[in-house]
Design a protein around this nucleic acid. Structure first.
Length: 648
DNA sequence: CTAGGGTTAG
């Protein structure tokens, strides 16, 4: 192509001044417009764009070309790094270059306002245009989509309703499919399922986007049954629709379902992208399922999605939760781009594995070297790290820093961490004072942390007071009753224990049965309940366990009978202890893997004192590494020591 | 122009 405006393409960008003598356009008008458009799309800077703008409004372009060209110019302007590169007045100036006011350019202007913050700017621009031009300027459907999008971004219900209203009143476009879809999206973002559903139900022409939006409306509100029902009726499902279900299950703590749907969509030949993979990763993290995790990792590597920040951060979290903290580290340090999620996941992972000093070192690296701004979740990780390691001074320091240096107001969750920190360290009274001085209402987590502290330090009187609060806040949470009754039992207050038992019975609460999982070499997950004889090799397991106990007793093992909170004789207590599910799992692990191996056990409840001691001794005597994930954290047993330092 | 993404807690 002959270039008659050669300077348009010449890097470096020309000066902003419009040259006095413009070259005469010898190209036919459409080709001229195309050339300018191309130049606009690749324009490197604001001065360059201004120059093109000046050219464009002077050249004899075809009538419809100028608004289109200028709309592209606005889009380019909004995309220039770092935004907002262009102030709104300049964009308005671009808009007024065309007379009469052009609807297409008006929509582009709204889009520009949306892209350059703040989220509700399009509404202001819209009112401005209405005031300035009235009925002279009609609006196109996508102008209303942008308003709805703006409401979506600000998650403001009044804004969503306003976008809805003007689509009807000004545009008459509430029946336009794209507009309806964006309105649904806006209502979903604001959490108004009813309004979203109403728009959806009244739609004449629903497409897969409308259906998916409603599925998401339900998954976000935690109503998976309705989500399933809508998804089932959706006539054509694409990858995004399937992914909405995968992440819906993952977000609602149904990881097994999430993986089932993920498998199903893969079977159907759906393309797996980084978003669907993220959902599967989150599900694996929740399950702590090592083999599924390895399989997901393989997909991530094969597809190259492992380089994506979200996928990478998910992998870090997943490995940490599967017990492979070093693998998590490896992924973390291999990532090129790291953000606050990446760091927070790694910090929380290190904290849950008892590697407090590394967690804190990483936090320092994050803020000092990487310049990544920490958020409220980051501090949860930092504070739990301190708490699990008994680092009271550091915890206080970071709690203060969070407020003073980073302007993050402590939430009830942060207070729960602090209460846990102080309480574990034996400062139970100070913890109680902290709860009483809180600026937000304490929730179950805060009182629960305090009750945990009472358990560790045998404060049965404070425990009774604390439990009162807990029973009010969480009447159906079984763990609180069990904890209180354990505390009372340890103090020998058997009459009060039976009162708690009666209370539990009245509430018709049943204990969650204790269960331990062990993933065998074959990839099968073996499940052991306390006192369970259901495993096909139960005789071998029991026999090996008895031999093991005898061996440990020679090494000085004395069962911690106080871990049994029933008022039974010592012999019975010991028998119950030997039936604990993690001991069965351990025995089976030793039987199948032999000494020198690593045994991973996942347990649904907190590991008891006796099992903890038992694991420590076995790790030394049998030269094995044992990794137990209980409902609180990870315990790495090696050479007779545990990574939690006896602090859990 | 319209739909799907990750981290936290006793």
């Amino acid at each position: 192509m002959v270039r008659l405006i050669p300077r348009l393409h010449a890097p470096p960008p020309p000066p902003p001044r419009v040259p006095a003598g413009l070259p005469l356009p010898l190209l036919p008008a459409p080709a001229l417009a195309a050339t300018l458009l191309e130049a606009v799309s690749s324009s490197p800077s604001l001065p360059h764009l201004r120059h093109l703008h000046a050219l464009a409004v002077r050249l004899p372009l075809p009538a419809t070309s100028l608004p289109f060209l200028l709309s592209r110019l606005l889009r380019r302007l909004a995309a220039l790094p770092p935004p907002p590169h262009a102030p709104l007045p300049y964009a308005l100036n671009v808009f007024s270059a065309v007379s009469p006011p052009d609807p297409f350019l008006a929509a582009a202007l709204l889009r520009f306002a949306f892209l350059t913050q703040p989220p509700l700017l399009p509404f202001r621009v819209f009112s401005h245009l209405r005031r300035a031009h009235g009925a002279e300027l009609p609006f196109l459907p996508f102008a209303f989509s942008t308003l709805a999008k703006s409401a979506t971004a600000s998650r403001s219900l009044p804004a969503a309703a306003a976008a809805h209203a003007v689509s009807v009143l000004v545009g008459g476009f509430d029946r336009h499919r794209f507009v309806e879809n964006s309105l649904i999206g806006a209502y979903v973002a604001c959490g108004d399922v009813g309004a979203a559903r109403k728009v959806f139900d009244e739609m004449v022409e629903k497409d897969v986007i409308s259906w998916t939006s409603i599925v998401v409306a339900y998954t976000r509100s935690g109503d998976m049954r309705s989500a399933e029902e809508v998804f089932g009726r959706c006539p054509v499902k694409d990858m995004v629709a399937w992914t909405a279900m995968v992440t819906g299950y993952a977000q609602n703590a149904m990881p097994v379902k999430a993986l089932e749907v993920f498998d199903r969509m893969a079977e159907l030949g759906m393309v797996i992208d980084e978003v669907s993979l993220t959902g599967a990763i989150s599900a694996c993290a929740q399950l702590g399922a090592l083999r599924r995790a390895a399989w997901v990792q393989e997909i991530a590597e094969r597809t190259g999605f492992g380089n994506n920040v979200v996928v990478g951060s998910g992998l870090v979290d997943m490995y940490a939760k599967c017990g492979l903290i070093d693998e998590a580290s490896k992924v973390f340090y291999g990532m090129q781009e790291k953000n606050v999620y990446t760091y927070s996941s790694m910090i929380a992972g290190l904290a849950s594995h008892g590697r407090a000093s590394e967690a804190i070192a990483l936090f320092k690296e994050m803020v000092n070297r990487a310049n990544v701004e920490p958020n409220h979740v980051t501090f949860i990780g930092v504070l739990t790290a301190c708490s699990h390691a008994g680092m009271v001074g550091e915890g206080r320091y970071y709690f203060a820093q969070m407020k003073d240096k980073y302007g993050i107001m402590p939430s009830a969750d942060h207070y729960a961490c602090m209460v846990d920190l102080l309480g574990r360290a034996g400062l139970v009274d100070e913890a109680l004072d902290l709860v009483r001085s809180m600026s937000v209402t304490p929730h179950g987590g805060v009182w629960g942390a305090l009750l945990g502290a009472c358990r560790i330090h045998g404060k049965s009187e404070i425990a009774k007071v604390v439990a009162e609060h807990l029973f009010k806040l969480e009447p159906e949470s079984i763990g609180n009753y069990v904890l209180l009754s354990n505390i009372l039992a340890s103090a020998g207050k058997w009459e009060e224990v039976s009162k708690v038992r009666i209370l539990m019975r009245k509430q018709r609460l049943k204990k969650d049965p204790a269960v331990s999982l062990f993933e065998g070499r074959d990839g099968l997950v073996h499940q052991f309940f306390a006192g369970d004889n259901a495993h096909p090799r139960t005789h071998e397991i029991k026999k090996a366990l008895l031999e093991l106990v005898a061996k440990l007793k020679l090494e000085g093992y004395v069962p911690i009978l106080s871990s049994i909170v029933y008022d039974v004789n010592d012999e019975e207590k010991e028998r119950l202890l030997m039936g604990h599910s993690e001991k069965l799992a351990l025995s089976f692990g030793l039987l199948t893997l032999g000494s020198g191996c690593t045994i991973r056990i996942t347990k649904n409840l907190r590991i008891c004192d006796d099992c903890h001691l038992f694991m420590r001794l076995v790790s030394r005597v049998e030269s094995v590494e044992i990794i137990v994930r209980d409902n609180m954290r990870f315990h790495h047993f090696k050479n007779g020591e545990c990574s939690c330092g006896g602090f859990w």
